[in-house]
Design a protein around this nucleic acid. Structure first.
Lengths: 116, 116
DNA sequence: ATATAACTTAGAGTTAACTTTAAGTCAATA
DNA sequence: TATTGACTTAAAGTTAACTCTAAGTTATAT
C-alpha cells in the first residue's frame, strides 16, 4: 500500500507518516526498487495502534518507549505491562478531568444559559 | 490573596498565573501600592474555571474568546451558549476516543500480558 | 519526448502553552 | 544598614508534534 493510500485510510498526512517512521514509531517501511514506500499489513496495524493512542494523548516518547521494548523481545514483557498500566492510569485520570469539565459545561448550558 | 497563595491553592506556577493574566484569561488583577497582586474571590473563581477547562484540553484561544464575549455583556449570551455547546461536543468526542484507547489498553494488559 | 503528478530526502519553520532570564523594586529581618 | 526573599516586568527560550520547503527522482499520460 502506498503512502497516499495509507494517509487517506487513516486520515494522517504523508508528512506525519514519514515523521512517525523517522522517530521510530513505525517501520522501517519497505521500499520498492525506486525507493517508494510499500506498507505491509503489519505496518498498517501499527499505524492504527499509534493513531488510536496518539488521539488519546499518549506522547510519542511513551509510544516509542513501548515499541522499543517490544523490539527487544520477550524479556521486556513485564516492563511493557508496567508501562501500559501506568499509561492506563494516566488516561483514567485524564478522562475523569474531562468528564468533570463536561458536566460543568452541561450545567452552564442548561442552567445559566437555559433561555438563551 | 497573594500570587504565592493562589499558586499553591490551585497548583499553578506564579509564571502561569501571570501568563494567564497577560493573555487576558483573568484579571487584570488588582495590585497594592507597591505593585503586588492581590487576588479577589472573583479572580479565584475564574482561575478555578480556567484550570478545569484547561485540564480538559480547551485551548487558551477558545477560553479567551468566551471570556471576551462575557465582558461584552448580555447581548453575547447566545454566542456564548453556542461556543459552550461546540466545546462540549468536542469534549464528548475526545472522551470517546480516550475511552476507546483505555479499553484497548485494558485488553492488552488483561489478555496479552495476562501472565506476565 | 515532455509535462505532470507522486514520490523521495534533509533540514528549517510553526504553533501552543508555557518557562526562564535579566534586571529591578520592596518589606522584613539580622 | 545590609541582606534576604518575594515580588515585579518585558522579552527570550523551550518543548512536543508536527508541517513545510527545496531540491531532486521516477512513473504515467499526451
Amino acid at each position: 500500500m502506498t503512502i497516499k493510500e495509507v494517509s487517506e485510510k487513516y486520515d494522517l498526512t504523508n508528512d506525519t507518516l514519514r515523521y512517525y517512521e523517522k522517530v521510530g514509531l513505525i517501520g522501517p517501511v519497505k521500499k520498492n526498487k525506486s525507493g517508494i514506500r510499500d506498507y505491509t499489513e503489519e505496518d498498517l496495524k501499527r499505524i492504527e495502534f499509534v493513531k488510536c493512542m496518539r488521539s488519546a494523548g499518549l506522547s510519542i516518547e511513551v509510544l516509542k518507549e513501548y515499541i522499543d521494548l517490544f523490539a527487544e523481545g520477550k524479556e521486556t514483557e513485564k516492563a511493557r505491562k508496567e508501562l501500559l498500566k501506568r499509561e492506563r492510569e494516566n488516561l483514567r485520570k485524564k478522562i475523569e478531568k474531562m468528564q468533570e469539565a463536561y458536566e460543568r459545561l452541561n450545567y452552564k448550558i442548561d442552567v445559566f444559559y437555559k433561555d438563551k
